[in-house]
Design a protein around this nucleic acid. Structure first.
Length: 379
DNA sequence: CGCTACTCGCGCACCACAACTACAC
DNA sequence: TGGTGTAGTTGTGGTGCGCGAGTAG
């Protein structure tokens, strides 16, 4: 039996709120974090079932327990671990914010139903807001990776990718995302999902009704395959290809960060789930630049190594479609606003708890009119 | 059609201070 | 060459204000 909820002191604590540094039961979690917009943004995760004091970062599938980094290390990697336990399958636990329902939590935590959690019902804020966000990698790494994989924590955090073997466990989510398991060379970056979901639909919506079609037919690269150097030797020498091929451009197009947040409707209801990656290494200029350079390469025409062929003429309709898609992409890119990205989580956490006067930070000890840590404002 | 008054939305500055960086020793 | 100390810089979020666009009279 775990420790009791810090708020009601009646039910077992299930959720750890980093901002409040409190362990809460699900009911209190919803009540507390539906109070205002600020509290909705508190990053929460499961509480460690071993020490009942620290936020859990991984879920041991074999032991069916959620563990914090320390307990995970002691149990699986440390000197107390055995050869058997060190090979336990562990799943990274994502943080969340907002007021997700049990069903939504289940969608991000496949093991959620294993916790024997009785749903406390749909919270008011959930019905009114219908918003849940997964803020960050639960390991605290500022990776911007959607960790939906079952993987060894050290590999998942280091490789920043999705392991192929991990897909089945969360295949439903992957299917919802419209992601083919074999795509991206097995690597799935959050922002790539964004591209797949948002840009594909809007960019190529008229030409390709289903993003799945794209993946099944060679992915986005197939859209630009016309620009690849022809295999026919008469069409040009492959050695004349520029250092950066369109294939590479398409690749960078896929791998470069384009937007920090992905949004998609998981259900025909009002419920939206948005995943956002917090990256510490990249900035707006980075992904803006890489996207622009990729598109610049794509739009360079005519390609010196690509002479018009009968095949090209036959495929002119596809080229028109492609050009339209590129035009829509450019227009959208021009109108796009880059959302603010948190580079330093520690500074964000500090700012979140800092007292203010009319929105401005005030010296500690001075009178304040807004205390994020207090449920009621102090005047 | 042009002018004025008003509303609305967006972008930016402000604040304290921990974290970070650069430099000298 | 690596460690330490110091000074300067950066970045974080909520709020208010200014400005431009849009609308009504």
């Amino acid at each position: 039996m775990g420790y009791m909820c810090d708020f009601c002191d009646e039910q077992r604590s299930m959720v750890y709120c980093r901002s409040d540094a409190a362990c809460l039961c699900l009911s209190c979690d919803r009540n507390v974090h539906s109070a205002n917009a600020l509290s909705k943004r508190h990053s929460r995760t499961l509480v460690c079932e071993r020490c009942n004091a620290q936020p859990a970062s991984v879920r041991c599938s074999d032991e069916r327990v959620s563990l914090c980094q320390n307990c995970d290390w002691l149990g699986h990697d440390g000197k107390n671990s055995t050869t058997t336990t060190s090979h336990h399958k562990r799943q990274t636990i994502n943080c969340y914010s907002g007021c997700p329902s049990s069903a939504e939590l289940s969608s991000i935590w496949s093991f959620f139903m294993d916790l024997n959690i009785s749903s406390a019902g749909e919270s008011a804020c959930e019905q009114g807001m219908g918003l849940m966000t997964i803020d960050e990698d639960s390991t605290g790494e500022k990776s911007g990776v959607l960790n939906v994989n079952v993987d060894q924590p050290e590999t998942s955090s280091a490789a920043q990718g999705m392991d192929h073997s991990s897909v089945p466990e969360n295949s439903s989510l992957a299917k919802e995302l419209g992601v083919c398991e074999d795509d991206f060379n097995g690597n799935l970056i959050t922002d790539e999902v964004d591209l797949a979901l948002e840009n594909y639909e809007e960019l190529f919506g008229s030409a390709f009704n289903s993003s799945r079609y794209l993946f099944e037919h060679g992915g986005i690269g197939s859209l630009f395959e016309k620009d690849e150097a022809p295999e026919d030797s008469t069409q040009g020498n492959a050695m004349q290809q520029p250092a950066v091929s369109n294939n590479a451009s398409a690749d960078s197009f896929m791998t470069c960060r384009t937007e920090p947040i992905i949004c998609y409707s998981s259900k025909p209801t009002h419920s939206n789930i948005s995943f956002s990656g917090i990256t510490g290494e990249s900035n707006a200029g980075d992904f803006q630049d890489c996207g622009a350079s990729s598109m610049k390469q794509l739009l360079r025409e005519p390609q010196p190594w690509c002479h018009p062929t009968a095949q090209d003429i036959i495929a002119s309709s596809h080229a028109t479609t492609r050009n339209n898609a590129v035009m829509r992409y450019k227009e959208k890119k021009k109108a796009r606003k880059f959302d603010k990205r948190v580079r330093y989580v520690s500074r964000k956490e500090r700012a979140d708890v800092r007292r203010r006067v009319k929105g401005r930070f005030v010296k500690s000890g001075e009178a304040y009119d807004y205390d994020p840590m207090s449920p009621t404002r102090s005047y």
